[in-house]
């Protein structure tokens, strides 16, 4: 039960897992931001089909638990593809995890973008269009720069959620921090100390993230 004694034994495997946690989170967030922009633009477009696709995607992701999505991409999808094509289809744990986390964050981020764009005063678009700028230029020069400032706090919040949600992926065997912790506990029974350290690691990272986001916000609003 000694916290510090356990730490000296467990920290290499936890740090190892944390490396994977950070890697998959950063990678999926980067892709999810791009995905989020496209889904958001589809969602606010006047094209019924594009809007329909965007809304369907968001509805699907929001309406199902991430654990189910992870199982779906890792177990269910390969079986489906195999039964259609007739040949063996395998997906790595890492790919399935990346797809799950990216599609998940992408849906929420697109909604954050949409909310921010819609909260920019309507008169801004009218002023830009009145000067003769077309829709795309008005978006790019007038609306998006303001939307970015508005979305920043929610976006950082989503980063934090995605970071923490990535622990769910231990269930399909991604060797992130929770997976490594669980294996260590299974071997040593030191559950209290191990999970305490896992929690502390997350607290540390999230605290640093919040700190950076506040600093960035201050600079942008200045």
């Amino acid at each position: 039960m000694n916290l510090f004694q356990v730490f000296s034994e467990v920290y290499p495997t936890l740090l190892n897992g944390l490396g994977m946690t950070v890697q998959i989170t950063v990678l999926s967030l980067l892709i999810a931001m791009v995905l989020g922009i496209f889904v958001c633009l589809m969602n606010i477009s006047h094209n019924v089909v594009l809007r329909g696709i965007a809304k369907f995607y968001i509805w699907l992701i929001r309406g199902t638990p991430m654990l189910v999505q992870a199982f779906y991409f890792y177990f269910a999808m390969p079986q489906l593809i195999q039964s259609i094509t007739g040949s063996q289809f395998r997906i790595t744990v890492f790919t399935a995890s990346l797809v799950t986390l990216t599609l998940n964050a992408g849906a929420y981020i697109s909604e954050i973008f949409r909310g921010s764009i819609e909260s920019v005063n309507k008169g801004q678009m009218e002023a830009a269009r009145s000067l003769g700028l077309n829709y795309a230029k008005s978006m790019q020069k007038i609306i998006l720069p303001q939307a970015v400032r508005i979305c920043l706090p929610s976006l950082v919040n989503q980063f934090i959620i995605t970071l923490k949600d990535s622990t769910i992926l231990y269930a399909i065997g991604l060797s992130e921090i929770m997976y490594n912790a669980k294996i260590y506990v299974g071997r040593t029974m030191e559950s209290f100390a191990t999970y305490t350290w896992v929690a502390i690691f997350f607290l540390l990272i999230v605290t640093i993230l919040s700190f950076i986001s506040r600093a960035v916000e201050r600079r942008i609003n200045a």
Binding site: N121, Q124, E126, R129, S130, L131, G132, I142, R149
Partner: peptide
């Protein structure tokens, strides 16, 4: 319309200057 608007200036009640 984008071309036509270039030579029609518009001033709004709420100014609508670009704050950034």
């Amino acid at each position: 319309i984008d071309k036509i608007r270039r030579h029609i200036g518009m001033v709004f009640q709420q100014f609508n200057l670009f704050p950034h």
